[in-house]
Design a protein around this nucleic acid. Structure first.
Lengths: 148, 148
DNA sequence: TGAATTCGTTAGTGCGACTAACATTTAGGG
DNA sequence: CCCTAAATGTTAGTCGCACTAACGAATTCA
């Protein structure tokens, strides 16, 4: 995505475009950082949800993370293979699995947290603290409006 | 991406995440709107570049739009099949093709412009004019910083 | 009890971003 | 002038994320 030459004005000024392009850059930063820890966005989201809300069924985790339950299967497989979480049948509801964070999972999440904190700084580097707040405020409001 | 339940605080406040999620929503809006005209993001970017800067080689268009030259091949094929642009060998440099917008291509672009203007409004609906400017300003600065 | 719903899972789609490799053609440096 | 390096168009892949359809098994509800 190296626009060495002139970019069409229409694209340069269109919010949805700015958003997409910047999100692409952000995702590359995030993706590269996470890759250093053999992780992806879904891994982080899932681990974070588990730590903050505790063990839960896959369906509940799907709702909390926004990851489709179909995609969650593979994500959980990957993390379970590495013993970062455990998948056990729910005795109280035999349709469900209970997903539980392991000690190593929690440690892994800590590493990812640190990596991602750096990324946020790089991403927002040119903005002052006030501007950063303004940006996240505006983004948050838009997101609320479109998800709620 | 329907987060019906609670979202982890870490994700709710992380700029890169807000950005990605909002960009996803924006792209869905844009994608749906463009789909009504049998178009995709790449189509619009390419047509816009052609109208603003005139006929050009595929490599030049790749630089201007940020679309990889490999992906541009298919995009141009699709639009050429629909007579929205023309691909002719460049007599002055036999490595190159000259891509030229047709009259119908220009008309098609006009339709897409209208569709996308509506999408921008929907996207930014909850923001005042001042806030919209603030947002695009901040996004633009970040994008500049990361591409330049 | 029968119908509708929930849950985990498999399989497959679409789009955008990105890489590698190749043949052809052009441009540049000794 | 030649030879090497670079540019161009093209084919063929990969990857990640978002999303749909369909299924069997288990549970809830009317």
């Amino acid at each position: 995505m190296d626009t060495g030459e002139e970019t069409p004005a229409r694209l340069r000024g269109m919010p949805s475009r700015l958003l997409s392009m910047l999100a692409t850059h952000a995702q590359r930063l995030v993706g590269d950082a996470l890759a250093d820890a053999d992780a992806r966005t879904y891994h982080y989201a899932l681990l974070a949800a588990l730590e903050e809300f505790g063990s839960a069924s896959q369906a509940a985790l799907s709702r909390r993370t926004g990851i489709y339950r179909s995609d969650l299967v593979a994500t959980i497989n990957e993390l379970a293979d590495r013993k970062l979480l455990e998948r056990t049948p729910d005795p109280g509801d035999r349709r469900r699995n209970v997903i539980t964070l392991t000690r190593e999972g929690r440690r892994h999440l800590g590493r990812l947290d640190a990596l991602l904190a750096d990324v946020q700084n790089d991403l927002l580097a040119p903005l002052s603290a006030v501007e950063r707040d303004a940006l996240t405020g505006l983004l948050g409001r838009l997101l609320d409006h479109h998800t709620r």
